[in-house]
Design a protein around this nucleic acid. Structure first.
Lengths: 135, 135
DNA sequence: ATAAGGCTTCCAGTCACTGGAGGCTCAATA
DNA sequence: TATTGAGCCTCCAGTGACTGGAAGCCTTAT
C-alpha cells in the first residue's frame, strides 16, 4: 500500500504519517522505487494512533499505549493508569477554560459594545476594577 | 526599573519579558550599562499582557487589545468583538475536551484495571467495539 | 580581591505537525 | 514514444509562546 491509500483509509494525512515514521511510531517497508510500502498492520497502527490522538493522548502516551497494545502480557491496570492520568489532565484543562470563560463572559456582558471608548474589558485588563463586585 | 523587579511586580518571568520585547510588545529603554530600563508604563503594559494571557488571549489578540487600550478614540465594540470571538473559541475547546472526556471516562470505567491483559480501552483504540452500546 | 547574583546575548529545544521547494516515478493519453 | 499530471521522495523552515542553558559582562557586598 502506498502512503496515499493509507492516508485515506486511516484518516491521517501523508505528511503526518511521514512524521510518525520519522519519530519511529511506524516503520513501513520500502518498495524498490523508494516508496513506502505499508502493510495492514501498519494501517492498523496508524488508525490506533488516530483514535488515541483524537482522544487527546500525547505522542508520548501513544507510544506507551501502542507498546501495551502489542504486549500480550500487559496488565490492563497499566493501560488504565495512563488513561486515568490523561483524564485528570483533561479535567484540569476544562476547569481552567471554564474559569477563563466565566471571567470573560462576565466582561463581555458588561461591555456595551458601541462607538463609545469606555470599555470594562480593557479596564479589567488594565487592572482597574470597573465591575460591580456583588455581581 | 531592572527586569527582575518588573518580573516580580508583573508576575511575568524575565525570559518572557525579553521575549515580549523581541516581538515588540514592549520597548523598554536601555541604561548606560546595557540593562533594560523599564518605566511604570512598561510595567502596566506587562501587567495588562499578563491578565490578557491568563484569559487565554493569543499574543496576536493581545497586540490588538493593547493597541485598542492605547487608542483613546477606540470604540468599545471593537474590544467586545475580539473578546466575543475568543469566548467562542474557548467554548469550542471546552466542547471538544468534554467530548473527549466523555468517551475516555466511559472507557476508563469499563476497564477492570487489574493484572489481566484484556482491556476495553485498547480494544476501542484498536477499532474493535467492545463496549455495550446501550451504556 | 573575590564571590554571588543579576543582567546581557545567542542558540537550541519544546509539541505535533504543516507548507513548500525541488526532483524522481508511475499511469494514462496523444 | 513523448508528454502530461498525479503521486511519491527528501530536506528545510515555520508555527505559538515560551523555556533552558551556555558564555560572559556588571554590580554589590564582603
Amino acid at each position: 500500500m502506498n502512503i496515499g491509500e493509507v492516508a485515506e483509509r486511516s484518516g491521517i494525512p501523508p505528511k503526518t504519517i511521514r512524521y510518525y515514521e520519522e519519530i519511529d511510531l511506524v516503520r513501513p517497508q520500502r518498495s524498490g522505487n523508494g516508496y513506502r510500502d505499508f502493510r495492514e498492520t501498519d494501517l492498523h497502527k496508524l488508525a490506533f494512533l488516530g483514535r488515541a490522538r483524537a482522544l487527546g493522548f500525547s505522542i508520548k502516551d501513544c507510544r506507551i499505549l501502542l507498546g501495551l497494545y502489542e504486549d500480550e502480557s500487559r496488565e490492563s491496570a497499566q493501560v488504565k493508569a495512563v488513561a486515568e492520568e490523561h483524564l485528570t489532565a483533561i479535567d484540569d484543562k476544562i476547569a481552567q477554560l471554564q474559569s477563563m470563560r466565566e471571567t470573560l463572559s462576565h466582561l463581555v456582558r458588561s461591555c456595551h459594545g458601541d462607538d463609545r471608548p469606555d470599555c470594562p474589558i480593557l479596564s479589567d485588563l488594565a487592572g482597574k476594577a470597573d465591575l460591580p463586585e456583588g455581581g
